[in-house]
């Protein structure tokens, strides 16, 4: 669905980084779970969303990070048209070829035929995803967009082999794909975490990760928390731009790493929360 805010379905989130959001439908099951947990951030009767986010980076050259789900081509393509204002789309970079992230890839490439498709270098089955001719990127690679510079650090928390995260070094933004997602409610769409009145606490992060990262139920928590702690050091001060939550400014990001450590311990102790 198109987000019903005064700003429509897209906004600028940080300089040169534009955010296009697909909220999907109301997640009644998760809303029930939130209410049963006694959480105080969710107001009964509000719609609750687990969004898909795409980000358009505009320097001298342009790059789109992910494409939303196939249900939202009608959101993505007009947003791109408006944001690009007649400029070409130079790169389409996919975090991973999962349907809710890559669902409009062909539509975008048809609309912008000179656009270079960028895909994670990891994995061996690119041809099974139409990615065999894509430009493959990994931790050693950087794309200079002219005013913005993107890198492709290893995806620390991932579900499939062909997967990468992305960072933008000028604004110091880390795009964490499926990690650090969380639900939001009516009135919070297209807002950063510093622009909403409710808290993003451990329970709210757990509602997402206990479903999407169902495998937390099988982990040695100390292994995951060590990896999270390493990320907190490596990307200290970076803003976080997840694919399924609201962007978190760099100045506010540090406590989120510890909250995620608590999420992992909880899911490892109590099991998955369901299916998204």
């Amino acid at each position: 669905m198109t987000v019903a805010t005064g700003r429509g379905w897209r906004r600028d989130v940080w300089p040169g980084i534009h955010w296009i959001q697909e909220c999907g439908g109301h997640r009644a099951g998760i809303a029930r779970s939130v209410l049963e947990s006694g959480a105080d951030w969710y107001r009964p009767g509000n719609e609750l969303y687990v969004p898909q986010n795409a980000y358009l980076l505009t320097g001298e050259r342009t790059l789109l990070w992910d494409t939303l789900s196939p249900a939202s081509g009608h959101i993505l393509l007009p947003a791109l048209e408006e944001l690009l204002e007649g400029r070409p789309l130079d790169y389409l970079a996919l975090s991973h070829p999962d349907v809710p992230h890559a669902g409009n890839t062909m539509q975008v490439l048809r609309r912008y035929p000179d656009c270079r498709l960028v895909a994670p270098a990891t994995g061996e089955t690119h041809a099974l995803y139409h990615l065999d001719d894509a430009m493959k990127v990994g931790p050693e690679d950087e794309i200079d967009l002219g005013g913005l510079r993107v890198r492709f650090p290893e995806a620390t928390f991932l579900d499939a082999a062909i997967h990468t995260w992305m960072s933008e070094e000028t604004t110091r933004t880390l795009f964490t794909v499926d990690w650090m997602g969380f639900p939001h409610q009516s009135g919070e769409s297209l807002r950063r975490t510093d622009e909403i009145d409710t808290v993003v606490d451990v329970g709210r992060l757990e509602e997402f990760h206990s479903r999407v990262m169902f495998w937390f139920q099988y982990v040695v928590p100390e292994k995951v928390t060590a990896a999270t702690d390493a990320l907190a050091v490596q990307f200290a001060g970076y803003g976080l731009a997840p694919a399924h939550g609201l962007p978190i400014p760099g100045a506010d990001a540090a406590p989120y790493y510890e909250r995620m450590n608590q999420v992992v311990r909880r899911v490892a102790a109590s099991g998955r929360g369901g299916v998204l």
Partner: peptide, 19 residues
């Protein structure tokens, strides 16, 4: 098919099952 939201998975015509 099993999924929380069939539209997002590109399967609007699927009959949903669950675990």
């Amino acid at each position: 098919a099993s999924c929380g939201d069939a539209d997002l998975q590109g399967l609007p015509y699927a009959r949903r099952t669950k675990i």
